[in-house]
Design a protein around this nucleic acid. Sequence first.
DNA 1: ACGCCGACTTGACAGCGTCAAGCCGACCGC
DNA 2: GCGGTCGGCTTGACGCTGTCAAGTCGGCGT
Lengths: 190, 190
Amino acid sequence: MTTDLKSQVLEASVQLIAEQGLAGLSMREVARRAGVSHQAPYHYFDDKAAIVAALVERGFTLLSERMEAAAHGSSPGQKLERAGHAYVTFALDEPVYFRLMFRPELTDLRRFPGVEAAGARAYAVLERLVDEHAPRAAQAKRDAMVSMHWSLVHGLATLLVDGPLGAEFPDAAARTRHVEQVIKLFATSF
Amino acid sequence: MTTDLKSQVLEASVQLIAEQGLAGLSMREVARRAGVSHQAPYHYFDDKAAIVAALVERGFTLLSERMEAAAHGSSPGQKLERAGHAYVTFALDEPVYFRLMFRPELTDLRRFPGVEAAGARAYAVLERLVDEHAPRAAQAKRDAMVSMHWSLVHGLATLLVDGPLGAEFPDAAARTRHVEQVIKLFATSF
DNA sequence: ACGCCGACTTGACAGCGTCAAGCCGACCGC
DNA sequence: GCGGTCGGCTTGACGCTGTCAAGTCGGCGT
């Protein structure tokens, strides 16, 4: 129960999105929930996009931490596999953050360099793990490998969180089982 | 230059999104561009979501057609690879449609069964190609293969259209080259 | 004691999606 | 030929939104 308004605003925003979806995020409703006037949040955030940007930055940081924490194991391949699994798990655990992170129409990354940097840090984790896994590959091939791994986990995550796969596996247990199968299938070939 | 308002509204919507992004889509602006009063579009569409739903349905149909058209080749593996390539190419060629298609907060699929059906048809194309490619696999494994292929192309497409990969490859030629490398790398292992 | 300044409030404005009602010309049955 | 219905559209209003502009007020430094 933090008392300072800035974090109250952020917390209320997350909760509002969780309840009503992205379209439900409203400056005025956030202010209402924080018990302040409709302009008070503007003291801490330039505009609505700035609130979203703060959440996106936090989301990328959380994602990096999760991937780092998961990236241990006996072989580079196993580390990569676990980091990928952590990527998808993060999306399922924190759908609000994940959704915001890849919706550039809400943030306009160029306005918020901190967000871009946080995204780059997450990307760097993946890149490092791929490099360790295939240290002798040519540059173009390594780029392709990074994109391939990232696409796989990102696609799986978005299809589950926002897309038809989420509707197909409404039950959380079946969902995680499916994720493990897909990742295993992929990992055994790379 | 169609004269009937319904298609004029849809066309204006697409153009508006192309110019100003998803947030720029406004009933009133669409009406203005069609040269009618702000309520005229409501004669053909229940609300804003219905316009989006019509575009999403069209998008899924276009995607199915593109995949079907691309899915020819000497082997089932090659057909699958080409359909996947067509998926990504569709996203790059028609970013407006593609973005709309996977943004469920705008449509609420349950309200629009036609959209859901069109999505299922696209899914069925992919499923069929995977089945032809691995006809003797167990059901669970086939599900995992479908998800894996779909995740790969979907992830690559969204990262290029909306995500950081798009920023990394601003030039269209480099982009398609990268797509081909990633898909080739993936296809040679499955 | 005074002025400043951070933290907030109050008020206003344009634009939005949408409900409600009205207008008008074309077609149909009589 | 004519009243009635109806599709296709307009006009007007409502509450909501994000945001600009200006004001209030308590504590702190000098």
